[in-house]
Design a protein around this nucleic acid. Structure first.
Length: 603
RNA sequence: GGUCUCGUAGUUCAAUGGAUAGAAUAGAAGUUUCCUAAACUUUAGAUACAGGUUCGAUCCCUGUCGAGACCA
């Protein structure tokens, strides 16, 4: 039981003893005490002033006195300022906490909940390479998967590959027209980039054809867009694909393979991993049966033209089409089918979709329809909606060439990491493979941390020239802190090794000294790790972890600047601080792991 | 037009209705005989505007202005 929970229940017991009124511990508000006041944690008294009919000052005095009297080994002092009861938690508590957890490699991990969760993320199109927006998606998806695991859930990650449809056909047509048999191998191009180039070629040619039709044949723009020969050919190819025409299918498979080979490289670099991959070419017909079920259950209704709809006006939305009059299904039908499939396949309680916030409406509708249909997992559908990554020039637009390519960005980050590291000149003793790995760790660490440190729900700004820093609230700062801790621990180890060669003198069990501010601040923060994981899992927000770990690293740096570990005043202090450094290093490592970021032993 | 989201230091981000609104960076000033200065310390700087609810509002409600997304 963590300290905040203990304070809540202790306060609840004290209040009942004093006033005979039962307050649920959860109803008591506990905050960390602000640094300008004495104490560690603060009970906010205002909320029960009315119920207990006493002034906040009197309440504070009485409750504070009772707490200290009841549990002198937990509370060693209190003071009341306005409506705030500041409590000082005993050194004994913090020392015990350290003793109990310094040797636990899984510190922070919560007990199993028995819940099964699926996290769907990444979901790329097979007609172009990944960009900065995908990176936010991938990092979030990976991180939330790790966080939910750490919070005790069984988690499956999945990815839905959008491998069919008109946009794929565009790349295919352009390849037929312009490639002259070129392949990624023959051009030494990464497969996804190779296919992406033909998607761009399609758009260029298409634009040209539309312009010609408008200028020369005076067609209306809308008509020209439909009648452009390249577009007509693409539409025909889509029909051929749906009919399974062998040469179209063969081309489609070949180009998709190129793209997957490219994606694999990127996924390996960023560490994305999926337990299950769904391909839309396999799943796009799912949900057709559910339309019939919905009609039978009268959740859906048929219009005169034969199209099928659901009326969501009672839920504050509008009417939504679920099957066209020609019998073809729409996007959402497939998603309903896939939701059902996931539930059947994995028996999940919760299904999380990491998808951009432009689809907020879509997922609201999806969940409502599943609920109306009575699908077992419907209430567990959760849209982890994240904001767009914006550039100083505005929104990224592939048509305008303002997308930040994922592979290029990653390569740039690694180069910057290399340059900065070489500048500092601390890694002469590294082997060259170790250096390569280090640059990758630092470069990706900087990028991942930058994208994960802000609330996913909010849109964020990325300035390619300024955003990535290696100082302050960044991944590399935290990695550096970890490297320093490891360095100290190595030194302590070698010191102990040489000391143990000498005859042992039994160390007298000295009375533990009073905790210094730097030591206690760090301990108080470390104790919050499990609670922070719980919070990040509940709110599905990795930024909670990022902010927390940064705070820990900063406290360690302050501690490190003021107090020596190896040359501590007494052996008892040296041992205590070594354990403290060990646990700090572990929290940093485990916490960064939840963000998908590695930490080096040395940098 | 309808629905929704967002406006916080120069900039990028925090803040379950609680104390004097926190960080980082950029700015100013310091710290290296001592465990890695990618660090530490000090300093200055912000809630778009106008009302309302509350003991207390960045947070809840209404309106105005501004940015964005979605649905037609």
């Amino acid at each position: 039981m963590n300290i905040i929970t203990q304070i809540k229940s202790a306060a609840s017991i004290a209040i009942e003893a004093l006033y005979g009124i039962q307050l649920a511990p959860e109803a008591i508000l506990i905050n960390a005490t602000k640094p300008e006041f004495t104490g560690d944690y603060t009970v906010v008294l205002f909320s029960f002033v009315k119920q207990l009919k006493k002034s906040p000052e009197v309440l504070g005095e009485e409750i504070g006195r009772k707490l200290v009297d009841n549990q002198p080994d937990l509370f060693t002092g209190f003071n009341v300022i306005k409506g705030f009861l500041n409590l000082t938690v005993a050194d004994f508590y913090w020392r015990t906490f350290l003793d109990e957890n310094a040797g636990n490699p899984d510190f922070g991990r919560l007990p199993a909940t028995g819940h099964k969760v699926m996290v769907e993320y990444s979901s790329p199109n097979t007609n172009k390479p990944l960009h900065l927006g995908h990176l936010r998606n991938n990092f979030l998806g990976y991180s939330i998967t790790e966080i939910l695991k750490a919070a005790g859930n069984e988690v499956f990650s999945s990815c839905v590959v959008n491998d069919r449809g008109i946009h794929i056909c565009k790349s295919m047509i352009a390849w037929q027209l312009f490639a002259d048999g070129a392949t990624p191998e023959s051009t030494h191009t990464k497969g996804d980039h190779f296919v992406g180039e033909y998607y761009i070629k399609f758009n260029d040619e298409y634009k040209r054809q539309v312009k010609t039709l408008v200028d020369d044949q005076k067609l209306e723009p809308e008509l020209a867009e439909k009648q452009a020969p390249i577009m007509e050919a693409t539409q025909k190819m889509l029909l051929d694909w749906e009919e399974g025409k062998p040469e179209v299918i063969a081309l489609w498979k070949k180009m998709n393979e190129w793209v997957y080979a490219g994606f694999d490289v990127t996924y390996a670099a960023i560490g994305s991993h999926f337990d299950k991959i769904y391909y839309e070419s396999n799943t796009y017909l799912l949900g057709k049966d559910l339309v019939e079920t919905g009609l039978q259950k009268q959740v859906f209704y048929k219009k005169e033209d034969g199209s099928v709809w659901i009326d969501l006006t009672a839920d504050g939305l509008d009417e939504k089409l679920v099957r066209r009059k020609d019998g073809t299904s729409v996007y959402i039908t497939q998603d309903i089918g896939l939701a059902e499939q996931k539930q059947k396949e994995f028996n999940i309680d919760q299904s999380i979709y990491v998808v951009g916030d432009e689809q907020n409406y879509h997922f609201k509708v999806l969940k409502l329809i599943c609920q109306h249909l009575g699908l077992p997992s419907a209430d567990g559908i959760f849209h982890l909606s994240y904001g767009m990554v914006e550039l100083p020039s505005g929104k990224m637009k592939s048509r305008e060439g303002t997308v930040v390519d994922a592979d290029e960005l990653i390569a740039d980050m690694i180069t910057i990491a290399r340059d900065k590291t070489e500048e500092l000149g601390k890694v002469q003793d590294f082997a060259s493979e170790a250096l390569t790995a280090l640059y990758q760790t630092i470069g990706l660490g900087a990028l991942k941390f930058f994208l994960l440190r802000v609330d996913p729900k909010k849109k964020m700004m990325f300035n390619p020239h300024e955003s990535i820093d290696f100082h302050g609230f960044t991944g590399p700062f935290i990695q550096y802190t970890h490297a320093r801790i490891k360095s100290i621990l190595r030194k302590v180890e070698s010191k102990e090794a040489s000391a143990s060669a000498l005859p042992q003198t039994p160390t007298p069990t000295a009375q533990p000294s009073k905790l210094l501010k730097q030591e206690k601040d760090l301990l108080v923060a470390l104790e919050q790790f499990p609670a922070t994981i719980q919070e990040a899992a509940t709110e599905q927000d990795p930024s909670k972890i990022a902010i927390y770990i940064f705070g820990v690293a900063k406290l360690f740096s302050a501690f490190y600047a003021d107090l020596s570990i190896i040359n501590a005043e007494t052996p008892e202090k040296m041992h205590f601080r070594t354990e403290l450094a060990k646990l700090t290093g572990r929290v940093i490592k485990n916490g960064m792991q939840l963000l998908g970021i590695q930490v080096p032993e040395q940098m």
